[in-house]
């Protein structure tokens, strides 16, 4: 795909090539400023980033031609590094709108209020999460751990084919990290794939990747299996 992208005229990605197959987990590691978050922003269609070259294909469809919401409906999901607080919009209303917009895009009938609540309940049970967040405004006043759990809950509701987890481990203590990682593992199927963007090896103890890529200076400079992450932990990015 040879992806190039820039923000405010500054080139951040300088030719990223990546092939992700169904059922695979790819970790992307790299030092600060390598372009990790830019990659997730570009894949999801963030308006602040301009793609200056390259292509992205998802199941035979040209992703870069779609607006952000269409990419989401095609199954691209981003677990945000900093989930946004939306005062006045309840979790239930937010999630129901999202689920039904996706269903409409797929030519399905919207879920009734009852079926929707049942689905919420089922996903919460699957992730072993309580129901105390659902009547609150989206992410408003949530702790760091609650916000990340809520991202995984949304992922469970939307069943993406490609989930991008952007620094999901940042700001989590070890218990919250385990809950979040368990959730991600439970959502894994042979038909979906994920990209785990992380700074540290720690998360990869819980979400075991098939491939580890090192992103530096806007390019993937090294690819290996999970042992590469351990190597990086020991020797640092300088050691490459």
């Amino acid at each position: 795909m040879d992806l190039h992208a820039s923000i405010a005229g500054k080139e951040i990605l300088r030719g990223v090539n990546l092939v992700i197959n169904e059922g695979e987990v790819h970790a992307i590691m790299g030092p600060n400023g390598a372009g990790k978050s830019t990659l997730s922003a570009v894949l999801t269609g963030h308006p602040a980033y301009e793609v200056t070259g390259g292509e992205v294909w998802l199941r035979g469809k040209n992703l870069l031609e779609m607006p952000a919401e269409q990419r989401a409906r095609e199954g691209v999901f981003l677990s945000f590094q900093y989930p946004v607080e939306i005062p006045g919009v309840s979790m239930t209303n937010f999630m129901r709108t999202a689920v039904n917009e996706k269903r409409q895009y797929e030519g399905k009938e919207p879920l009734s209020a009852r079926d929707f609540l049942r689905l919420m309940k089922q996903k919460r049970a699957m992730l072993e999460m309580g129901d105390k967040l659902q009547n609150r405004s989206v992410n408003e006043g949530f702790s760091g751990g609650e916000k990340k759990k809520n991202e995984i809950f949304q992922m469970a509701m939307l069943e993406p084919c490609l989930a991008i987890l952007d620094e999901t481990d940042s700001g989590l203590d070890i218990d919250a990290l385990r809950i979040v990682a368990d959730g991600v593992n439970r959502l894994k199927t042979p038909e979906n794939a994920s990209i785990v963007i992380t700074h540290y090896q720690r998360l990869l103890d819980y979400i075991v990747p098939d491939y580890v890529h090192v992103l530096a200076d806007g390019r993937i400079v090294k690819t290996g299996d999970k042992t590469l992450a351990l190597e990086l932990e020991e020797r640092g990015y300088e050691g490459l």
């Binding site: 269609g45 607006p67 919401e69 989401a72 945000f80 939306i86 005062p87 937010f94």
Partner: peptide, 29 residues
């Protein structure tokens, strides 16, 4: 809030619907 709009779009909610939800939320109280 542009970041809220993008967050909602990333969940598959169209920009127009997201706009409406945010305005309604603003006026809710």
């Amino acid at each position: 809030d542009e970041s809220a709009l993008f967050y909602m779009q990333q969940r598959g909610i169209s920009r127009e619907v997201a706009y409406r939800m945010l305005v309604a939320a603003f006026l809710k109280d």
